[in-house]
């Protein structure tokens, strides 16, 4: 994965959090309070064994309205 890399503590509505990759962003886009949604994306390509790993990543939720119920690294 080529830098810059984006990741942060993602806090879920209703409780729970996980440090995860943030995708579909450019440098300067990410700051505390960014509203995000979960997307299922390529996580890693295992070149030795030729399979592709997928996992959830956080992407900016551009449709979100003001209610800040899920924030990145609050």
């Amino acid at each position: 994965m080529a830098p810059p890399n984006h990741y942060g503590m993602i806090v879920f509505e209703g409780g729970g959090r996980i440090m995860m990759d943030i995708t579909d962003v450019s440098p300067g886009d990410v700051d505390t309070g960014l509203l995000v949604k979960m997307v299922f994306r390529i996580k890693d390509i295992d070149e030795k064994r030729g399979f592709v790993r997928y996992f959830w990543k956080a992407a900016p939720d551009r449709s979100a309205v003001s209610a800040q119920t899920a924030v990145a690294a609050e």
């Binding site: 890399n5 990741y7 996980i18 440090m19 990759d21 890693d44 996992f55």
Partner: peptide
């Protein structure tokens, strides 16, 4: 499989 590809500075 789940951890971000992070670093100590990050």
């Amino acid at each position: 499989q789940v951890m971000p590809n992070g670093s100590a500075p990050g």
